[in-house]
């Protein structure tokens, strides 16, 4: 029988910080004094204690003129208009769905901000309201865009585009929201044979490439669960991508199409299950970092 149980010791723990060029940034812990000199303004993540500016979260200090704020390493997602998010329906309410988007409060998806059958300009009738659970029910995953941020910080989402909507077969990976790089597009059809939606909220959706045009592929309410099962080769690609994304996030590297693709290519020398071990994870992150660095130099 092959060895399939691994127990490591804490002394074998490896340091998985990868510094880019210069030294690692200074980290502040909660309660640590950032500055004692007066004349600075108190920003997010800080408070005044006996005329000293003190960090209230663990993170890096940022200064804009006289304003000092501490940006936390780990935080919940704070939405911005136009962000692409992946979320899970938690509740069906009157004319709206509640969606878990990894932010402090559940987001809302109004019935009026989804594409219902019948085109854009149709009125929402009482029957639509009764049918709501048929469209999206608790536990369903959706991709959407942030339409509005309310004063309390909760988000209003919309899916009125064919690229958004219910997600069918695939794998959801959760990472820190701060690791997802803001790009022009967050929908990627990777050449390794999978689609990736990099939600700004740190939820990443990996699904097999859908043949036959993207128009009715991801969007709307099509959920092709009954269609043929995902073949093993596709599932291997998805599993490898999942492990690569987790490896990158473990090393606190930014996630975008190029970094994910490089990590995927570097991971090919390992078995998929090996990518759960810390050493291969660090190895592919270092190699990815080098390739990204070289690419930057070329430009």
């Amino acid at each position: 029988m092959t060895q399939n149980v691994y127990i490591r010791l804490a002394s074998q723990r490896i340091d998985n910080t990868i510094t880019v060029g210069s030294e690692a940034p200074r980290l502040y812990t909660p309660g640590e004094i950032v500055t004692c000199s007066t004349g600075y303004m108190r920003g997010h993540g800080t408070y005044m204690e006996e005329s000293a500016l003190t960090a209230s979260v663990a993170g890096v200090a940022e200064q804009v003129n006289k304003l000092i704020s501490v940006r936390p390493i780990k935080n919940r997602y704070t939405g911005e208009i136009g962000d692409v998010v992946v979320g899970r329906i938690t509740e069906v309410q009157q004319k709206r769905w509640k969606v878990d988007t990894n932010s402090r409060l559940d987001s809302v998806l109004l019935l009026s901000s989804v594409n219902l059958p019948g085109g854009e300009l149709r009125r929402r009738s009482a029957e639509d309201e009764q049918m709501m659970r048929k469209y999206l029910q608790e536990g369903d995953l959706i991709s959407a865009e942030v339409q509005k941020v309310y004063v309390d910080g909760s988000l209003s989402l919309y899916t009125r585009s064919l690229k958004y909507g219910k997600l069918s077969q695939g794998v959801l990976v959760k990472v820190f929201p701060s690791l997802v790089k803001r790009r022009k597009t967050h929908f990627h059809n990777l050449p390794c044979g999978a689609n990736v939606i990099l939600g700004n909220n740190g939820f990443i959706w990996i699904c097999p490439t859908i043949n036959g045009g993207g128009e009715d592929g991801l969007g709307g309410f099509t959920q092709n669960l009954e269609e043929q099962a995902v073949p093993r080769s596709d599932r291997e690609v998805i599993a490898r991508l999942r492990n690569c994304i987790l490896a990158l996030s473990n090393c606190k590297m930014m996630l975008y199409d190029t970094s994910i693709l490089y990590a995927y290519e570097e991971s090919m020398k390992y078995e998929i299950a090996e990518l759960l071990q810390p050493e291969p994870m660090l190895d592919i992150c270092v190699l990815t970092q080098q390739r990204l660095f070289m690419m930057q130099e070329d430009e």
């Binding site: 490591r8 804490a10 723990r13 794998v171 599993a239 810390p278």
Partner: peptide, 14 residues
């Protein structure tokens, strides 16, 4: 989903 077979454990640290 994570590439393991049915009888594989995830790595542990003690």
């Amino acid at each position: 989903c994570d590439g393991r077979t049915r009888l594989d454990y995830r790595p542990m640290e003690i």
